[in-house]
């Protein structure tokens, strides 16, 4: 009695709140189970493994930071993979952004059949990440592939095998990535729609032509969307795997020219059975992505315009 006397809240209210809480956790359960079992658990496990010499079978012997030291000091293929991955990220992300934005702007000009073209341009993003398209890509850029047949037919030009030539193979993969500009384009389109029409009318009274309107109005007002797309694309590009795996048959060849970071990690784990080392590689990638994302957010306030 004295306890309920000290609280102003009716007992029934407390009971209701208690029941609600459990119901809430009940509804959250699928997500919570998924998060702990499939995300957090493996993450912690992989961090532990990165400090061992685990081979996938047998015991995991504690080796401390040895894996990390080797990555930093004694692994030329790590640096090759870094080189390939950074080239891929630094070329594919800006190209994809520019391409997606250019197509979005063109589509936004009130072209007839907008929804048709929007679907057409989005299609590669739906199928582009798939194994089937990577296989198709290999057919297109192979020595006797479609591209060379076309070049031959049109110009009588004997093209090299683009994918088995180490100096061009990575660029076919970049091209494949850029080709999947659709989802960024859709987001850009939505962003362009957000810019009020009267902004352009005011600018045209101010004498700004189409180009000046684009650079002084559209681009600045689109910076939040550009920023969002850039971060998402960068993270995606660091994690790129499927296309390189399929096109190089899992080797990262020719001569490691398409050895994406994730592909190297995969080889270490599942070809060389160095799970401990692969786990360390995974954590290094996490740190790299975290670093780039953090940098993006830190620099954002200098160039991203937020309206509120």
């Amino acid at each position: 009695m004295s306890i309920s006397g000290t609280t102003e809240r009716p007992v029934a209210g407390g009971r209701l709140r208690f029941g609600d809480g459990w119901a809430g956790y009940g509804f959250l359960a699928p997500w919570l189970v998924g998060f702990f079992l499939l995300t957090l658990g493996p993450a912690i496990a992989s961090f532990y493994l990165s400090l061992t010499d685990y081979s996938g079978l047998g015991a995991a012997n504690w080796v401390g930071a040895e894996n990390y030291v080797r990555i930093a000091t004694d692994d030329p293929r790590f640096w090759t993979a870094m080189n390939v991955t950074f080239t891929f990220v630094l070329l594919s992300v800006p190209l994809k952004l520019i391409f997606a934005l250019a197509v979005a702007v063109a589509l936004n000009r009130g072209l007839a059949g907008l929804s048709f073209f929007r679907a057409i341009f989005y299609l590669p993003s739906l199928v582009g990440g798939s194994v089937a398209v990577a296989v198709l890509w290999r057919q297109v850029f192979a020595g006797d592939g479609l591209l060379n047949q076309a070049l031959n037919a049109l110009f009588g030009f004997e093209g090299p095998s683009w994918i088995s030539n180490p100096s061009t193979s990575l660029y076919t993969l970049i091209l494949l990535a850029v080709w999947q500009f659709g989802s960024s384009m859709i987001i850009f389109l939505a962003g362009l729609r957000q810019i009020p029409q009267d902004m352009y009318e005011a600018a045209s009274i101010d004498g700004a032509g189409k180009a000046r309107q684009f650079f002084r109005i559209t681009l600045p007002l689109l910076t939040p969307v550009i920023f969002f797309n850039a971060v998402i694309l960068t993270i995606d590009a660091f994690k790129a795997f499927t296309s390189a795996f399929v096109i190089s048959d899992g080797t990262g060849g020719p001569i490691d020219s398409t050895l994406f970071y994730t592909l190297y990690l995969y080889q270490e784990a599942f070809t060389n059975f160095r799970f401990g080392y692969a786990s360390a590689l995974a954590w290094v990638l996490v740190l790299i992505i975290a670093f780039f994302t953090a940098m993006s957010f830190l620099t954002a306030r200098f160039w991203v315009h937020y309206d509120d």
């Binding site: 902004m199 009318e201 005011a202 600018a203 045209s204 009274i205 007002l221």
Partner: peptide
């Protein structure tokens, strides 16, 4: 003639200020 060449200026209902 283009809007900018007519010697006019317009005040919009929404103001249409450039937010950035």
């Amino acid at each position: 003639r283009a809007a900018s060449e007519r010697g006019i200026a317009m005040v919009f209902q929404s103001y249409a200020l450039y937010p950035h």
